[in-house]
Design a protein around this nucleic acid. Sequence first.
DNA 1: ATGAAAGCGCTAACAC
DNA 2: GTGTTAGCGCTTTCAT
Lengths: 336, 336
Amino acid sequence: MKYMVVTIKDVAKEAGVSPGTVSRVLSGQKKFYGPKAEAKVLEAAAKLGYQKNILASNLVKKKNNVIAVVISSVQTNFADSIIRGINKVASENNFDVIYTYTTSLDEGNQPHVIDMLTSRRVSGIVLASVILDKESITKIERADIPYTFVSITPENETRTISSDDVDIGYQATKYLINQGHRRIGLAGLDNQYYTGKRRFEGYKKALKEINVSPKKEWLFPGDYSYESGYDALKYYKKIQNVTAVITASDTCAVGMLNSATDNGVRIPEELSILSIDGTNLCEIARPRLTSVSQNFEEMGQQGILALIDMIKFKSTEISRKVIDVKIDERDSVKRI
Amino acid sequence: MKYMVVTIKDVAKEAGVSPGTVSRVLSGQKKFYGPKAEAKVLEAAAKLGYQKNILASNLVKKKNNVIAVVISSVQTNFADSIIRGINKVASENNFDVIYTYTTSLDEGNQPHVIDMLTSRRVSGIVLASVILDKESITKIERADIPYTFVSITPENETRTISSDDVDIGYQATKYLINQGHRRIGLAGLDNQYYTGKRRFEGYKKALKEINVSPKKEWLFPGDYSYESGYDALKYYKKIQNVTAVITASDTCAVGMLNSATDNGVRIPEELSILSIDGTNLCEIARPRLTSVSQNFEEMGQQGILALIDMIKFKSTEISRKVIDVKIDERDSVKRI
DNA sequence: ATGAAAGCGCTAACAC
DNA sequence: GTGTTAGCGCTTTCAT
């Protein structure tokens, strides 16, 4: 069965009023129509199964109440929380949200994704856990679309809602120190991007406070992945020189945990693990993972909030916002 | 810095040609413009930083090459695979894809999400792992938008790409039978929707072939969740009457595994677990989970393919397609 | 309070 | 090949 698409004109004819009136009624401009007109229009619209063509409406209004979220398609298990936060606040504020997945920097579908968003004139963009190439940023700015980063803070970027990575590194290290550890590993962190560098900074800072200078061999860089963690454990088992290690992510920590099982290392008896992120993986893992937990849902909420602010008030002010982290003590760190 | 939005007219003026020509060049209608015009237009467009307003274009063309994917926001860990499959095929076919997350049936933001999609005149909708209320389906059909279900097959629905749930239940059970099991549990499945009922059917069928009739107490219904699995293990430990259990999902299986650890039950020595889904959780879990694996990426690909077909050829034919499952043997099932 | 008419940015005839 | 024009479906002055 084919339905023809019904326009405002059809409704107008059916209701015996002008298109203008239909438009006014349907967009609820209360002061500009009478009750009898309203009744007729509503009835006609319902009868015809009318549905507004938002695209046409947006075209003339030169606005578009949809916010686009760009998510890294790299397997990040905290995306769910960010999405939850975003959806909640967006719907409270009557914005629609669409999500798009993009590959990482190097693979290069980013420009295309951004093109699609700017050419569709979305009213705002949140970059969730992605690092964007310079070209794409320029495009967004040329299109005059407000945007904000969430969860990942690129270097030199000020429009961003995230945890303070120095703080994460610092608190993680400090916690282990307080549990009696002195030789502390750092596993799975990249050392090319901002995040890795900053966490490392915090790590050094905490260590410095107790006058220990981190040895190069305590570091096992990686890419936040399960595999990084898996390999890290084997490495630390070999060097036998740390009593605890901080992992770059929960996924990475689980990799270490499994590697420990597979290689006969008991956690936390022989080695303590402190994870960064605090997603539900920490509860699911055995032993449950003690973590420096980020509040991803809050990031999503604050991100959208900041964005809506920029959209509504065309405010161009810097929106750097830091979301606090906390330590969740579970079973993977041993006091020594 | 404010950029003004530049239109086709601006480009035309800058290039010294008519808007029509600009449009033709920019949409690459090769046969309708000369090289000198092309050069001028391209240069002017680049200089001005012109970007097409797709909304206006779509309005006149009465089409919109974006496909929307509606995903259940319920924590499903196989969404990633579906998304990967979808993105791959869509981009190969020059369709843009946007994703929206909807809550489950009962919570009721579904109508709103569907409204936003139909009023934006997306050219197709894939319902990924969601069950849609009747009202929403009607809306989509009234809007004359092609759609297809992926991964979940609602009762009486024919436009769907998914595994055969009877087959899943059958193969799972059969596999355990071949491993020597006779008393087989079924945990975490719902018994109200189609999926649960169908898998149960397959389960009974396999059992019937060896002349055993399933006992009611072998069943522990649930909602596919980690918690369902966690509770299931305690239940089976108490009744002590099955040697193996089939879990509704990988998440559910992991729940059982952890519950086993916490309750001192050894897997697979004391109880075998066969999971359904086969996501990367199976590799991550310890012991690694033997599973009936669904090919989610393939579902995504086939789903989009079917949809594009409907869009291009306005074909209205039934698109039921079954994606084969396979058994991945790992370490959670013991031969007895 | 309502109708008529212009126009959002673009494309697709239709001329030439 | 290229310019001109009408019009996609809607909103919004401007009259009345």
